[in-house]
């Protein structure tokens, strides 16, 4: 508990530092490419078109998901994945790749994963903006449900940060954790309903559905669809869509992960340098 407050306090105290560092992080990443920031949009665009062709046209004859074209359904869900996946991968290696540069112990080490995560969030917010503009030319136009976007983004950041606290600490001590995280993320991409919709398949065993829902990333991806496709609110509770329960489950899980992560981080951070 004490470590959780400590980590939170460090985040709040070094907010300006975090913002500046994440801007530099972004700059370092895109400095060497001629197209620079444009890659933050080109890359997702290429990936989306491949998934559309293979999973949309190839595997389901481009049939709609509910009343939405597959492509639109795919885009609404995958957009936040372009944040989650790199943020977790970069976040978990954030500490051991930087600890040498951060030469002073009074630099709050818990800020490292968070500024790395923020550096990935900016371009993602830009991508989301572009997608929202494109959506205005479809049937699903802007609505009050869009107000949920910042909420779900915050949820994504909270989840990714809590996870990164755990993985960045562990991967500093045992480098293999990074490899483990990589393969887990590759697996999660398919377990999370991004490319296929488990909820429309009635033959799917019940426990598999529960498994899909227990995955906290499902909450975020489906939440983005709720917002972008005007499907519902996160605090709504009805028989068919127990959103409120799901919201409580999600935040409960984030809290547990954050407590574990901050305890591990605070306990081991003084020895990080020894593990290099």
């Amino acid at each position: 508990m004490i470590s959780a407050f400590k980590v939170l306090k460090e985040q709040l105290n070094s907010f300006y530092l975090m913002m500046r560092l994440s801007m530099y992080e972004l700059k370092i990443k895109n400095n060497n490419n001629y197209l620079g920031m444009l890659w933050e949009i080109l890359n997702p665009a290429i990936q989306i078109s491949v998934y559309w062709i293979v999973f949309g046209m190839g595997m389901r004859n481009n049939s709609n998901v509910g009343d939405v074209p597959f492509l639109q359904w795919l885009v609404a869900g995958i957009v936040i994945w372009f944040f989650i996946s790199p943020a977790i991968l970069q976040g978990s290696k954030s500490i051991y790749t930087r600890i040498k540069i951060i030469s002073k112990m009074n630099f709050p080490l818990s800020v490292i994963p968070s500024y790395v995560i923020f550096s990935i969030l900016y371009p993602n917010a830009m991508l989301l903006g572009i997608i929202a503009v494109i959506f205005q030319f479809t049937d699903k136009k802007i609505s009050l449900y869009y107000l949920q976007l910042p909420y779900y983004m915050l949820a994504a950041v909270a989840l990714v940060f809590s996870l990164s606290l755990i993985t960045s600490t562990l991967s500093t001590i045992v480098r293999d954790v990074q490899m483990f995280v990589q393969s887990i993320m590759r697996m999660l991409f398919y377990v999370t309903p991004i490319l296929w919709n488990p909820f429309e398949n009635e033959n799917l065993p019940k426990f598999l559905l529960y498994l899909v829902k227990a995955n906290p990333f499902t909450y975020i991806v489906e939440g983005f669809r709720d917002a972008l496709l005007s499907r519902g609110w996160f605090f709504e509770n009805s028989q068919q869509s127990p959103h409120l329960e799901y919201t409580l489950y999600f935040w409960g899980l984030v809290l547990v992960l954050f407590l574990i992560g901050s305890t591990l981080h605070v306990k081991l951070r003084n020895r990080f340098v020894d593990y290099l």
Binding site: R20, L21, K27, I28, N31, K104, F107
Partner: peptide
């Protein structure tokens, strides 16, 4: 990757 000027800000921020 950063210029000298940017490094100055970065280092000072970290300090």
């Amino acid at each position: 990757e950063l210029t000298g000027r940017e490094n100055i800000e970065l280092k000072c921020l970290m300090l």
